[in-house]
Design a protein around this nucleic acid. Structure first.
Lengths: 182, 182
DNA sequence: CGCAACATGTAAGCGGTTACATGATTAC
DNA sequence: GTAATCATGTAACCGCTTACATGTTGCG
């Protein structure tokens, strides 16, 4: 499932511009599928080419036309087909965890800063998720809430684990009695 | 931090062949940084070119020479440098969550099967992590244990969340009184 | 005065995945 | 017999990231 499909799925919630989609990505999707304008705009153009969306240019003052996309019946059928048949993967690529894996080669100060930073970043992500969940004014389906809850649950677990176990990385090995005071 | 750096890091634990590294990736790294031979072999060749590892060919019967790689002092320095200065990212790309996000477009049976499959896959991953953690015979540093524990904690949280909240996706919306019997 | 938000797009480049190529041994 | 394990590599392809390109409005 590529960016095109995700954009098509988002358009199944209602019409939107590329800019709108980017904001949607940032607010609730970023934690499991992040992307940028460089992927979104070409995706929308391709979807329009295939007849899966229509595009209406809304003139604006002092800005490029706002291009509003709407999903077509063909697009909805294609989306259902893709969702019904694709083999959805799930993968994490974390240089952060890789670095921790090699903690024995990382200066202690650096290690501490990185872990502090990561915890802070995760709590920020948590706040962002909860913030966009609160309003409850959306016409979005329950699944959105579900996926945000999933992200929040994982973030909470990650923060807890880091807090409770970082000492395993940060205490000196103590093998070979190095720096033993007594 | 690319595949090259991770391979170099793994070689800081001790000598290994490309094949060995692949097994190491599969057993304990896969959950946060997966890769294949197509990345590992070129990475090792590049590291050898740069003088960060040496390569000793060990002849075998009926098989290609086993090429054993060892990190050099220059390689260790380069590794420390990279780990001390890189900006480690952490990102998840989940088509699975994307699909759940659009659950309103997915046939209920398919949805159930996918969630069941994902839970099963996660529990398998959990068993694999615990299995490779148990032996305790490794000369690997504590950080390895730490990272495996991290993976396990997240998997557990994910399984729990899916179990406890899947009904939110699987019960019909009930809006507009569809299929209301009474 | 400078920065953020609004708004859309192109194109090079990069890293990684996938498929291909080869081939013996061992266990079921 | 047929699948899995051992063992190494090459190369095309592909999608995504990044940088570039442009320009107005409004806020502090």
């Amino acid at each position: 499932m590529d960016v095109k499909t995700v954009c098509l799925g988002l358009l199944s919630f209602g019409e939107a511009s590329g800019y709108d989609l980017k904001k949607h990505f940032e607010s609730t999707i970023d934690h499991f599928y992040s992307t940028g304008f460089g992927s979104i705009y070409p995706a929308l153009a391709a979807l329009a080419d295939e007849g899966f969306v229509t595009c209406t240019a809304v003139p604006q003052e002092g800005r490029p036309d706002r291009k509003v996309y709407r999903i077509t019946p063909a697009g909805e059928a294609a989306l259902r087909e893709t969702l019904a048949t694709c083999e959805p993967m799930h993968k994490t690529r974390s240089e952060f965890l890789a670095l921790l894996y090699f903690a024995h080669m990382v200066p202690p100060d650096r290690l501490r800063e990185l872990i502090d930073g990561r915890i802070a970043g995760m709590q920020q992500g948590l706040e962002r998720l909860n913030a966009s969940a609160c309003p409850a004014r959306h016409s979005w389906p329950a699944s959105v809430q579900f996926v945000q809850g999933f992200g929040a649950a994982l973030l909470e677990a990650a923060v807890r684990y880091l807090r409770e176990n970082r000492h395993l990385l940060e205490t000196p090995p103590a093998t070979r009695g190095r720096r033993r005071v007594a």
